Simulated assay, not measured.
Amino acid sequence: MSTSNSFFNKVVRFMEIFLIGIFALLVFDVLFQVFSRYILKGSFSWTEELARFSLIWMSILGAAYLNAKREHLSMDFLYRKFSDTTKKKVSIIIEILIFLFALIVMVIGGFNLVYTTLHLGQLSGTLRIPLGYIYAILPFSGLLIMWFSIYHINKISKNQITD
């Protein structure tokens, strides 16, 4: 196993553990919300906001994780009919398009969103967390997706990834 494969696998494993942690936080938060509402007969407003932010982070980072594993949603009926050389070319084009989307929408747009919300001093309603910190997962995940796309292009070029 090469050094890049080892580092890639460590990053993916860390993401798995982090996503499991976010999911566990989300489950406990919602369970506490239900417990407080029906047993304690009172509701804490921060539990709803924490659940929303956890879901945002889990969804966006989960998309990067699925990109790393190459398990994102795809419709491959036509793709499966291609020859191996055409599949290789199409796979590289797809990875380039994913890279460009991550760059333009997630990284550039995400950094703009983070900067704007931090500059304006926007805080979340109940937790009073700067919204820029919540939105920071967008450019971070975009950078991960870009790195994963470069990694996949390299592997596809060397015929180390097959579909």
Rank of each mutant, 00 (worst) to 15 (best):
G125F: 12
M75S: 13
A102P: 11
K88T: 13
G125I: 08
A136H: 12
K81H: 13
F101T: 14
T117S: 07
E71K: 10
I93C: 06
L103Y: 13
T126L: 09
A63G: 14
F77G: 11
P130L: 06
I96M: 14
S124F: 07
V90Q: 05
Y133W: 10
I92C: 10
L113F: 12
Y65H: 13
E95T: 04
L66D: 09
F99T: 09
G62S: 05
K87N: 00
S74N: 04
D76R: 03
A63I: 11
L120E: 11
L144T: 04
S149E: 06
H152C: 15
L143Q: 07
I96N: 13
G125P: 12
F99D: 00
I137R: 09
I145F: 05
H72F: 03
P139Y: 13
K87C: 01
G62D: 11
L131K: 14
G109Q: 08
I108A: 03
G121I: 03
S124L: 11
F148W: 09
Q122V: 07
M146R: 01
L73H: 01
R70W: 03
I93N: 07
I137M: 11
K155R: 15
T126E: 14
A136S: 14
L97H: 01
N67F: 10
V90A: 05
R70C: 00
Y151Q: 01
G125T: 10
S124M: 06
R70T: 02
W57Q: 13
I92V: 15
I145T: 13
L73I: 15
L127G: 10
L127C: 06
G110M: 06
L103R: 02
L118D: 08
L143T: 07
G132K: 03
L103W: 14
I96L: 08
L120S: 02
L131M: 12
K69Y: 05
L127W: 03
I93Y: 08
I92Y: 03
Y133A: 00
Y133E: 00
S91I: 04
I129G: 06
L78N: 02
M58H: 09
I98V: 08
N112F: 12
N112G: 15
L144F: 13
P139M: 09
Y65P: 06
Y135W: 09
Y135L: 08
N112K: 09
E71H: 15
I93S: 10
L127P: 13
L66A: 15
F148H: 14
I108T: 01
I108G: 00
W147E: 00
L138C: 02
R70V: 03
K88R: 14
I94D: 10
K87Y: 00
T126N: 12
I129Y: 05
T117V: 01
S149I: 05
A102Q: 05
Q122L: 12
W57F: 05
D84L: 15
S124V: 08
K88W: 04
T116V: 05
Y135D: 04
